[in-house]
Amino acid sequence: MDLVGACRAFVSVSERGSFTVGAAAARMSQSVASRRVAALEERFGEQLFERTSRRAVLTPFGREMLPVARQLVQAADVLLHEAEAAKRKPWRLAVPGICSTAGLARLVAEARGHGITLDLRVAAPAQRLELIHAQQVRAALLAVPADEATWSVPLGLAGVQEPGVRRVYLETLRVGRAAPGPAR
C-alpha cells in the first residue's frame, strides 16, 4: 500500500466532503481515491468515513487520524521539494590548480550532458583535503601514492555512454600531458 498516496486521498476527500471532488483535487480518479481510502481503512481496521450517496463524513476515528495524515502528506511534499532542489544544486568538486582551463571546461560540459552541474573549486592539495573534511565539497581530486591507495576506479564521469559522446579523462586535465587531437 502507498501510505502517502492513501493519506493524500484521505485528506483531500475529508477536506471536500466528497470522494469525487476530493479525488479531482488530489489529481486522481474517484475510483483510485476510493481504493486508497479503503486500503487505509483495512490497514487501520476502522472506517474513516461514513459514506452516503452524496457525502463522505468523517467518523470519530477519521477525525482522530486526520491531523496525523495531514502531517504525513505535508512531510512527503517537503521531502519531494527538497529532493528536487538538491538535484538542481551544483556538485562541488575541488580540483588542482594545474588543471587546464580547456580540460576543466570539457569536464563541466560532459557533466552537464549527464544532468550534473559542477561547481569547481581550485585549491592546493592541503586545501582540497581540508575542503573534503569540512564538507564544503562533495569530492576532490587528491594525489595518493599507488601503494597507499585503498581503492581505484577508472577516471571519467560515471554514466551510460551514448554513441558519439566524448569522454573526458583526468590526464587530459593536466597541462602538457595530453596529446593534441580528438578527445577520447
Rank of each mutant, 00 (worst) to 15 (best):
P96E: 01
P96M: 05
P96K: 11
G97Y: 08
G97R: 11
G97S: 10
G97C: 00
I98L: 12
I98V: 14
C99E: 07
S100I: 05
S100C: 09
S100F: 04
S100M: 06
S100K: 11
T101E: 15
T101F: 10
A102Y: 03
A102D: 12
G103R: 04
G103E: 08
G103I: 03
L104F: 01
L104D: 00
A105I: 02
A105M: 04
A105L: 05
R106L: 01
R106I: 00
R106S: 06
L107I: 01
V108G: 02
V108M: 05
A109P: 02
A109D: 09
A109G: 13
A109K: 13
A109L: 05
A109E: 12
E110M: 10
E110S: 15
E110C: 13
R112W: 03
R112F: 04
R112M: 03
R112C: 01
G113C: 11
G113A: 08
G113Q: 07
H114F: 07
G115Y: 07
G115L: 03
I116T: 10
T117P: 01
T117H: 08
T117E: 12
T117N: 02
T117S: 13
T117R: 14
L118A: 04
L118N: 04
L118S: 09
L118R: 11
D119S: 15
L120T: 08
L120I: 14
L120E: 01
L120N: 02
R121E: 08
R121A: 10
V122L: 11
V122C: 07
V122I: 14
A123F: 12
A123D: 02
A123P: 13
A123N: 10
A123I: 03
A123T: 08
A124H: 13
A124C: 06
A124V: 08
P125Y: 09
P125H: 12
P125S: 05
P125L: 04
P125E: 02
A126G: 08
A126P: 00
A126Y: 02
A126N: 13
A126F: 03
Q127C: 03
Q127I: 00
Q127P: 02
R128D: 02
R128A: 14
R128G: 09
L129E: 15
L129H: 12
L129F: 03
E130Q: 15
E130L: 11
E130H: 14
L131C: 08
I132W: 05
I132A: 11
I132S: 07
I132P: 05
I132L: 15
H133Y: 05
H133N: 09
A134C: 03
A134T: 11
A134W: 00
Q135Y: 09
Q135E: 14
Q136D: 13
Q136S: 12
Q136I: 02
V137P: 14
V137N: 02
V137W: 06
